[in-house]
Write a protein that binds this DNA or RNA. Structure first.
Length: 600
RNA sequence: GCUGCUGUAGCUCAGUCGGUAGAGCACUUCCUUGGUAAGGAAGAGGUCGCUAGUUCGAAUCUAGUCAGUAGCACCA
């Protein structure tokens, strides 16, 4: 997913890098006081970061910028390279306009390097290169896409610059296809689909930003996922527990989450002179359940799970529909394990993921696995080299045993241990962790989590944190986008809509409705979810309404059906209807629901 | 949180130069009893996100604020 083939195409990267310079040159012509920062090529094109003092460049300027760029391309300016020493390069920069270029030289290039510059016309930019030999060979088929903010060196404590992002794929055809595909992807945005599907409600002004409510439709999906998880729990020997949503400050101080994560928790309220926090995580509470009595090596591992909501004061700018919310409901698993069991337990968690993903039709190209390790930032990660190494190796081993490809990233670990995140892309391209599994070697120390080993000694517990179904909010958002609203039968909020050709056939319609919506044995709450459409509309209109809600089966009855005790069934995705005996239809649906068949 | 953009009916949107609002869909009622993606008519529905300010007068101009959004930063 992340290593696509276009990435290896060097010539496009070179051209886009040259186009970035052309963009910068154009901007400099239009805004002479501009301070340029950096302009790399990306997978889809390139961008340039800059700041114009007292002026904010806007989308209204895009036309002018494009014209300037085309002009520079048409002039076919020669591009030449020159080299200078670090000191001369610094000296050569204007104090004002070169402010951010100096950042590059001082912080990225370094004193000992020879600094290369590329020149086109009267525009010179410090750059490693390589570049095209002249501007004329750059493609004019680029699309100035967005203007937004970006921090210097990605550091939120520094100045924010403006970033113009351009899509450039080398030719017109690729550009058109890209833009068209992106438009299609945007139609899969769960926020957009929600207008038809009516799964959730956000009332940021009244209830609060990031506090999502599920409607009766969304709640069906949540419940189905919960049934599924409950079934799996039994198979994987997970034990269900239950904990409160609030706790004293002491708990989170002990766990180490405070003061580390104070900013990310809702501010506390005072009761009897003590600060009470809304929980932002379940682990410390589960730890107390685990450690309520002494544990023998014989009973390990102990696997707890809880369906619970945690509250995180997520940054306002990061909130997005159901994908990033502030009240997060997870199926949160904590496995208390002996050292020699960690790999096997972690492996089981990966297997659990596989089972879920198979069932949901999520293929390996839909996600990627990221192994997150610490970097040398001592404020973010607990210091203990040997434990970090050991636990990272546990995860690598488990993941390798399950034959899943992964990539490793530094600096993304949890403060208490390395983690393996399943990452997915949303419809608009934002990457989200859909589930996370972590090995914790530190929390265990703080809570003195131990068991008595076969030598009668206290031995350290390793905790695996996992939420293989992610949060309901994000998972429902992701699944909505994944299926573009056309949920598999077992997840569909409404599985069948029955309607009659005219209300002459009311009684047969009622009969069919009663037969279809009958609940069945193995799980009473998993009967067939059937709606009856009694609206005074023409048949075509009723079909249209249900079709837009992506209802899997639309059942129509009239004179013919009544006579023969059949139904006319229109399956989602088809515009033809098939006649079949009522009994047969109900049986078919029943078995597909019970087996969680992905196909209709 | 930062930068930009946006905020008019449940939804999608229109509203000229400042003169207290309009359409389509949805909703309600009536007509229509109609065989597979929009039948017709009428009606109801809005302190123009909120708060100040400018003005005789603000949906429209200004400031602040709340929220959404695109990125960036964050993401236990």
């Amino acid at each position: 997913m992340c290593d696509d083939k276009t990435k290896g195409d060097k010539s496009i990267l070179i051209m886009n890098h040259t186009l970035a310079h052309i963009l910068a040159y154009s901007l400099q012509k239009l805004f002479p006081s501009i301070k340029l920062y950096i302009g790399p090529a990306t997978e889809e094109g390139f961008y340039y970061d800059f700041k114009v003092p007292n002026i904010s460049v806007s989308v209204d300027d895009f036309d002018d910028i494009k014209k300037e760029m085309i002009k520079i391309i048409d002039l076919d300016l020669k591009i030449s390279r020159s080299e200078t020493s670090f000191v001369d390069s610094i000296k050569g920069l204007d104090d004002e306009k070169g402010e951010y270029k100096k950042v590059i030289l001082n912080e990225i290039v370094g004193k000992d390097a020879v600094v290369s510059s590329y020149k086109m016309g009267d525009f010179v930019d410090i750059c490693e290169g390589p570049h095209l030999s002249s501007t004329g060979s750059a493609s004019k088929h680029f699309y100035i896409d967005t203007i937004s903010g970006a921090y210097i060196r990605g550091d939120s404590k520094r100045d924010m610059l403006q970033r113009i992002s351009v899509i450039s794929l080398g030719n017109e055809k690729k550009l058109k296809v890209f833009l068209k595909n992106r438009e299609l992807a945007r139609q899969a945005d769960h926020r957009l689909l929600n207008k038809e599907l009516d799964l959730f409600v956000l009332e940021p002004n009244i209830i609060g930003p990031g506090l999502a409510m599920l409607t009766e439709n969304g709640t069906v999906i949540k419940s189905e996922l919960e049934f599924l998880a409950t079934e799996k729990e039994r198979r994987f020997n997970l034990l269900r527990v239950f904990t409160p949503h609030i706790a004293k400050e002491k708990l989170f101080l002990k766990s180490g989450h405070l003061p580390y994560y104070k900013e990310d928790m809702y501010p506390p309220f005072k009761i009897d002179d003590e600060d009470i926090y809304l929980k932002a995580m379940n682990c410390p509470l589960h730890h107390y359940i685990f450690s309520r009595h002494n544990r023998s090596y014989r009973e390990m591992p102990i696997r707890y799970t809880e369906f619970s909501t945690v509250y995180r004061y997520e940054a306002s700018g990061s909130l997005s529909g159901l994908m990033r919310v502030r009240a997060i409901t997870q199926n949160d698993i904590h496995i208390y394990s002996r050292e020699d069991q960690v790999v096997e337990e972690f492996r089981k968690i990966i297997q659990l993921h596989k089972e879920y993903y198979n069932l949901l039709g999520i293929k390996s190209e839909d996600f990627f696995l990221e192994l997150s390790l610490p970097d040398d930032n001592k404020d973010k990660f607990i210091e203990d080299d040997s434990e970090w190494k050991k636990t990272a190796e546990f995860i690598r081993e488990a993941v390798k045993l399950e034959n899943i490809e992964f990539k490793e990233v530094q600096g993304e670990a949890a403060f208490y241990g390395p983690k393996a995140d399943f990452q997915v892309k949303s419809a608009i391209g934002t990457v989200y962790a859909i589930s996370t599994s972590q090995v914790d070697f530190a929390g265990t120390k703080r809570f003195d989590l131990t068991f008595v080993n076969d030598k009668g000694e206290n031995e350290k517990v390793y905790v695996i944190h996992a939420a293989p179904l992610g949060s309901y909010e994000r998972t429902i958002g992701f699944l909505t986008e994944h299926f573009v609203g056309a949920f598999p039968l077992w997840l569909a909020p409404i599985q069948v809509v029955v309607m009659a050709v005219s209300d002459k056939f009311q009684s047969y319609l009622n009969n069919v409705f009663a037969m279809v919506s009958v609940e069945f044995v193995n799980n009473a709450t998993r009967g067939i979810r059937c709606n009856i459409d009694k609206s005074d509309e023409r048949l075509a209109k009723k079909i249209r309404n249900s079709t837009r809600q992506k209802v899997p089966y639309i059942v129509v009855v009239g004179e013919n059906e009544e006579k023969s005790n059949t139904v006319s069934v229109r399956t989602r995705g088809s515009n033809k209807s098939v006649s079949m005996p009522l009994e047969k239809f109900v049986q078919m649906i029943k078995s597909k629901i019970e087996s969680r068949d992905i196909n209709l």
